[in-house]
Simulated scan of single mutants.
Amino acid sequence: MSAPAGTPGTPEAGDRTDRAEGAAPATPRALARRRRREALRRFAREYARNRAGLFGLAALLAIGALALTAPLLVDQADLTITGAPGAAYQPPSVEYPLGTDNFGRSILDLVIWGSRVSLTVGFLATAVSVVLGTLVGMTAGHFGASGGAAGRIVSSALMRVTDWFLVLPTLVLAVALAAVLPRGTGTIIIAIGLTVWPATARLVRAQTLAVEARPYVERARALGGGHAHVMAWHVLPNVMPVVLAQTTLLVATSIIAESTLAFLGVGDPTVVSWGGVLEAARNAGAISSGIWWYMVPPGLAIALVALSFTLCGRALESVINPRLRG
Rank of each mutant, 00 (worst) to 15 (best):
A206D: 03
G225V: 15
A222S: 09
H227D: 14
V242Y: 10
W233R: 15
L203I: 04
A201G: 06
A220Y: 11
G225C: 03
L250A: 13
S254K: 01
A222N: 12
R205F: 01
W233Y: 11
V196F: 08
G225Y: 05
H234I: 09
L223Y: 04
P198K: 00
L236Q: 05
L194N: 00
V204L: 07
L236P: 00
L249T: 01
A232E: 07
R214I: 07
P215H: 14
A201D: 02
V230C: 05
A199M: 00
V243M: 01
V243S: 04
R214F: 08
T253M: 14
H227F: 06
V239C: 00
H234R: 05
A220H: 11
L244R: 03
A220C: 08
V204Q: 05
V230E: 11
R219E: 14
A228V: 12
P237C: 12
Y216C: 04
A199L: 02
R214L: 15
M240T: 12
L250G: 13
T253D: 12
T200E: 14
Q207E: 12
T195A: 10
A210I: 02
V204T: 01
P215L: 09
L203G: 02
V230W: 07
V211Y: 10
V235M: 09
W233N: 08
R221C: 08
T253R: 14
H229Q: 13
H234D: 14
V243I: 10
R202W: 06
M240E: 15
W233E: 13
W197D: 00
L249N: 05
E212N: 11
T195S: 06
L244D: 02
R205S: 05
S254L: 01
M231T: 09
